[in-house]
């Protein structure tokens, strides 16, 4: 079990599902190419295909509805956050670094002073209050394996609330995931979890 769980990431899920989709599509294509060498009257074909189509439609609609509702469990948006987070961290993005500090800031994003490295506890819920003092950026947290684990846009004039609980101690990185000018790829920060 301990070996399997880390493999079921969102990334792997998306990859596997899409691969299966692609294989199904390609099989249909190969089947169609090979089928087209013989001949059948259009009306007979229509009847057969329409029967399959009806089944497909019902299947697709049910799968879509089921997936839609089950996916709602994992929404990134703060639900009516009745229990407050254990810690609040203010994050201000700027071209081309991050300003972070504990607590709610009363200063404007411009005047806020913070560092691009911060130390936080594991297994505590953290509320990041994310904004920007110039252009759009994107506050993305990567774990030590290099997997993206959470993100939200960092936008001028707005504050996005991102809740995340770091599951284990270690080094996490922050990358900017919204193109913000030439040094965009170097706009990084660090989170130490202990």
């Amino acid at each position: 079990m301990n070996l399997i769980v880390p493999l079921i990431t969102v990334q792997n899920f998306a990859g596997i599902v899409s691969l299966i989709g692609a294989i199904v599509v390609l099989s249909v294509v190969l089947f169609l190419i090979s089928s087209a060498s013989s001949y059948e009257d259009k009306h007979e074909v229509k009847e057969k295909v329409y029967k399959a189509r009806k089944r497909y439609f019902i299947g697709l609609a049910s799968v879509a509805v089921i997936l839609f509702f089950s996916s709602l469990q994992f929404l990134p948006y703060p639900k009516n956050q009745t229990t407050p987070a254990d810690k609040i961290v203010t994050v201000v993005a700027m071209q081309w670094t991050w300003k972070m500090g504990e607590g709610v800031s009363t200063l404007s994003p411009h005047d806020f002073v913070g560092t691009n490295e911060i130390t936080l506890p594991a297994n505590k819920s953290i509320q990041f209050v994310v904004s920007s003092m110039d252009v759009n950026h994107n506050f993305a947290i990567y774990n030590s394996k290099g997997d993206l684990v959470a993100q939200t846009q960092a936008m001028p004039e707005y504050e996005n609330q991102l809740y995340y609980t770091f599951p284990e101690p270690g080094e996490y990185a922050i990358l900017c995931l919204e193109y913000c000018g030439m040094p965009h790829g170097f706009m990084t920060g660090k989170i130490h979890i202990n």
């Binding site: 899409s18 709602l72 990134p76």
Partner: peptide, 15 residues
């Protein structure tokens, strides 16, 4: 469509 799922997009967005 996979990526247009909110719960998946939170990880794949802008990758």
């Amino acid at each position: 469509v996979v990526d247009s799922t909110m719960s998946i997009n939170k990880i794949l967005h802008n990758t």
